[in-house]
Write a protein that binds this DNA or RNA. Structure first.
Lengths: 113, 113
DNA sequence: CTAATACGAAACCATTTGGTTTCACATTAA
DNA sequence: TTAATGTGAAACCAAATGGTTTCGTATTAG
């Protein structure tokens, strides 16, 4: 199913280094905003905005607990990235296969012609 | 070794959908700029700029042939992305393992406590 | 009740981004 | 030689991005 109603793209979400750091941080624990922002040099508000972008991309989930808003990692959308990479890995593999075949054969190097 | 002198980040380079499309296009063939840009609604100059960004990230290589500049895919820097993903796949796997262990055991659901 | 805490919304700002048009330059074709 | 082709550089522009400060509001502690 994978609704993908995301207002923000996964590719764009992970483009920012702060947001990548956020994802790693949130992989350990569910954390409230202030605790999260203590790991960054920027303001709490700035961190909060990054969290919203990640949430829009489906990469984190927020949960209100009393006056806190706790965030946790939601890695599923990263599969889109994985699938995208897959394409190029196949390309890469084919190149290697071609090279292997070439090396094993006895033809002259065409780049030397 | 992997020099990584890249002025542009791989993560940032692939953030743009046009650039992702460029990478796929260039995986088929080495192509000159005008031929490349015929696949896009934007101007040749705009495409050229995207190509420069990809080149700065090491994702494409350019080669001058006569009055043409030909570009081809250079997938190696995508390994950085792959490595980054790896981290979260491990996280994902651990969660699944934990779930499996939980399901197989006979304890009550801790989230219901 | 009152004060402190946790947070988002709003307004604002500088910089970056993705795009355009115009121009200059090198290479190739006639 | 002259015209056409392929391209990058430059100047410019609107919108997006990442950041800040200030303010309002809800929740909890004293």
């Amino acid at each position: 199913m994978v609704a993908s109603s995301a207002k923000h793209d996964v590719f764009q979400a992970i483009a920012d280094p702060t947001r990548r750091k956020l994802l790693k941080l949130l992989s350990h624990d569910e954390m409230p905003v202030t605790a999260i922002s203590s790991h960054f040099p920027t303001s709490r508000t700035a961190v909060s905005k990054h969290l919203r972008i990640l949430a829009d991309a489906g990469l984190v989930k927020e949960r209100k607990v009393g006056r806190e808003t706790r965030y946790k990692l939601e890695p599923e959308p990263l599969n889109e990235l994985k699938d995208w990479l897959q394409f190029f890995e196949l390309y890469w593999q084919n190149k290697l296969t071609a090279l292997k075949l070439f090396v094993e054969s006895d033809v002259e190097d065409p780049s030397q012609k």
